[in-house]
Design a binder for these strands. Sequence first.
DNA 1: ACCTGAACACCGTTCAAGT
DNA 2: ACCTGAACACCGTTCAAGT
Lengths: 243, 243
Amino acid sequence: MPFTSAGSPSRSRSRTAAGLPAVTAERLTCAAMQLTIAHGLDNWTVRQLAAAVDAYPAVVYHHVGDREAVVKAVVEQVVAKVPLHDADLPWREWFSRMLTDMRGLFRHYPGSARRVQSFGLSIESSVKFIDRGVQILQGAGFGAESPLVYNVLTSTACQFITMEDDHDADQNARVESAAKFGRYQERADLPGASAMASEASENSEDAEQVRRYYGEMYDYAVSRCLDGLAARLTVIKANSSVG
Amino acid sequence: MPFTSAGSPSRSRSRTAAGLPAVTAERLTCAAMQLTIAHGLDNWTVRQLAAAVDAYPAVVYHHVGDREAVVKAVVEQVVAKVPLHDADLPWREWFSRMLTDMRGLFRHYPGSARRVQSFGLSIESSVKFIDRGVQILQGAGFGAESPLVYNVLTSTACQFITMEDDHDADQNARVESAAKFGRYQERADLPGASAMASEASENSEDAEQVRRYYGEMYDYAVSRCLDGLAARLTVIKANSSVG
DNA sequence: ACCTGAACACCGTTCAAGT
DNA sequence: ACCTGAACACCGTTCAAGT
């Protein structure tokens, strides 16, 4: 039962009588975003969300819909926070900036990167990014491959962000796993596994180190993806000048 | 209560008296793999698994452990099925083959790609791939970057497979989403979004088309990643010959 | 229209008791 | 050691009833 946390322990059955603000979709979405920052998009319950606005679970369904609808509303708001950069930046620079911004934001709302990827086109706030991004790629010479290139870039980014989210979701499992794999460091008969184990153990010493390693990995992956696309672009241009 | 599906509706309290084979960890893991093929790793319950071997839920805990332990056992088996290619293949060819094999296999056990990525080093069956893969990258000249390169390649592959898994998890949502976004096709004021919408609508006509599109996207993403790494390799080699 | 309060049909997990 | 049968503490969701 709600209303117990308030200073005046009202026993009234109505919110207004208890001096509580009316529940709205906006207030619920906002509370859901706070819960997401604290626990991640997959780790709060409808009951927690209701309690956060001093209401019963059923009011969530009345104002927003089922859990999935709330999640979608949160993702919509998170994507809307990403800055839209200048259309006349070079394609590489434009995407490099967007993907860096995405990491900063999505990491603040754990689980959102995964949803952005799986909801895909149905997120209204992402239309402006799709539109400008695809236009920039077309302008750069990617032609008919532009939508595909856009998808590959954003998907790659979202995956590595999701990896980080998953990481700190069960940190206990990680520590144990790193310790277990750590024994491969001394296996001279498995030099490849040994090299991997050393890298893993070096980069799991403390939380700060782990964070830095994931950041490096993100930048490396995004850079290689951009390099590969740049190489592809020269092939496309060579073909079109021939044909 | 189990034992009701058998031909002889035994009311005995013991499995042996009912003529049922003893429950073992192997039988449970095997049943879990079948359930995973049918419903995906996240869409079966411990109770379903128990029922599949005509047992009570508690016996799962007795023989394997909690749900997560069963999932880990399944992933271990799935990874073990991936063929390990020849160590003297060129690095690009070796990874290209492995990642193609991974897609074929992991897609057959929906949800496994996501776990492979998040379990990371703690999967014993993947040690042999890590060892050989890292050695091949070292041999190719990637030096100290080899473990990172291995991670970037396998992570990229697992992500795109996870994307496909997520896709057919809620196909209804996809069809609706594609239809909704389809309206952007006629938006001449948003040429980039329009191009993306056309691509999406073309490739969501039927299940076969969708499957093919995801396959193309996978190959494209993996190829660009490999291209980007090849470009990086020439930079590393140039630096080392200078230093 | 908005909220209450309880219920429904699940879940993963635990545990004393049986054999 | 292995299995039974029931229970515990949750979940998301629904719904008649109140105001």
